[in-house]
Amino acid sequence: MDNPSLQAVSTLVAATDLSPASDHAVEQAALLAKQWDAELVLLHVFNDGFWATIKSIYEAERWAGTEPVLVARNRLSQQVRELAVRHGVRVRGETRTGRAANEIAVFCHEQNAQLLVVGEHGEDWIGDTVIGGTALKVLKRTELPVLLARRPASADFSSVLVATDFSDNSTRAAQLSVAWFPKARQQLVHAYSVAFEGRMRLAGASGDDIERYRKDEFSRAELKMQEQIQALRANTAVGKLLVHGYPAAVVIREAERSAADLIVIGKHGGTTLDERLLGSVTQNVLYQAGRNVLLVP
């Protein structure tokens, strides 16, 4: 298949550091697993280097109790049992040792997973302080969609905002969104602008000149948007939104305005320039949106 990410989800992985913040990810993954009748695998990566640093800072030898790795495994097993009972899903737990991004990427490949779900913040302040950062690192290492779960788990994403720059990648992201969340109200949003508008003004371009160029950009974007929506072949109507402005700011603002449950965004665009641009846009949306974000390779 040309785009493995469009496969029906049969296995999804939820990465957890067993902190309260990662519980959002685990619960959201469980609800999706139930909805898709998929197997859920909880993965905990134990960073022994982290614990060595902790021991060097604090008087850990005076602490009573079991070795941290055994405690982590026991807590993971308990969480697996509770999820199976509460949600009625097929779930199992696995542990690995090492750096989070590398171990998660390798594990997801071994499991042939179609989706990775992560939480926002972890407690590994020495390494991957923000698990969102781990999500981007995993995305660089694998062709696997990554869902950053920020909010309390929802059984259904009813409103989805899909960011598009009309690249092949953003088309795939939109296709995945329509395929995975067919009952949601889907809306494509594109931010358009006039290249070098500021310098054009310095060179003497009038306000009328700039407005004419903006209208030209809008017309081109509108045509591309219509072509992309037609390419989706969605069974339900897909909304479209063209807004003048910087892409990340537009996506974040429109997600707030529409109360979107989920933002879907591609990792990069088609050309080298697009890749740099949407790469920065993706990171800005990931860190600033305050909403669930699905990153699509």
Score class of each variant (00 low, 15 high):
residue 102 N to P: 09
residue 144 L to Y: 01
residue 136 L to V: 00
residue 234 A to R: 09
residue 161 L to T: 04
residue 275 E to Y: 11
residue 48 D to S: 12
residue 52 A to V: 08
residue 188 L to Y: 06
residue 173 A to C: 08
residue 125 W to T: 12
residue 121 H to Y: 10
residue 264 V to A: 05
residue 271 T to C: 09
residue 182 P to F: 07
residue 3 N to H: 15
residue 250 V to F: 03
residue 236 T to V: 11
residue 119 G to W: 05
residue 18 L to K: 10
residue 203 A to P: 00
residue 117 V to L: 11
residue 170 S to K: 01
residue 210 I to L: 14
residue 139 L to C: 03
residue 271 T to W: 07
residue 69 V to H: 09
residue 85 V to I: 10
residue 100 A to W: 06
residue 297 P to A: 05
residue 131 I to W: 09
residue 86 R to V: 02
residue 151 R to N: 11
residue 262 L to F: 04
residue 29 A to Y: 03
residue 174 A to D: 01
residue 78 Q to C: 10
residue 122 G to E: 01
residue 79 Q to L: 14
residue 234 A to D: 06
residue 71 V to T: 12
residue 42 L to F: 08
residue 156 D to S: 15
residue 85 V to F: 02
residue 250 V to H: 00
residue 21 A to H: 15
residue 243 V to H: 00
residue 107 F to V: 02
residue 273 L to R: 06
residue 264 V to D: 08
residue 112 N to V: 10
residue 167 S to N: 04
residue 286 L to R: 03
residue 157 F to K: 06
residue 196 F to Y: 15
residue 281 V to C: 09
residue 129 T to E: 07
residue 217 E to Y: 00
residue 289 A to W: 06
residue 171 T to R: 15
residue 10 S to E: 14
residue 231 A to E: 10
residue 146 V to L: 09
residue 225 M to N: 06
residue 13 V to D: 11
residue 275 E to W: 06
residue 18 L to Y: 00
residue 115 L to T: 04
residue 152 P to W: 01
residue 200 M to N: 00
residue 225 M to E: 01
residue 168 D to H: 12
residue 91 V to Y: 01
residue 97 T to N: 09
residue 27 E to F: 10
residue 243 V to I: 09
residue 44 H to K: 01
residue 107 F to P: 04
residue 225 M to L: 11
residue 78 Q to M: 14
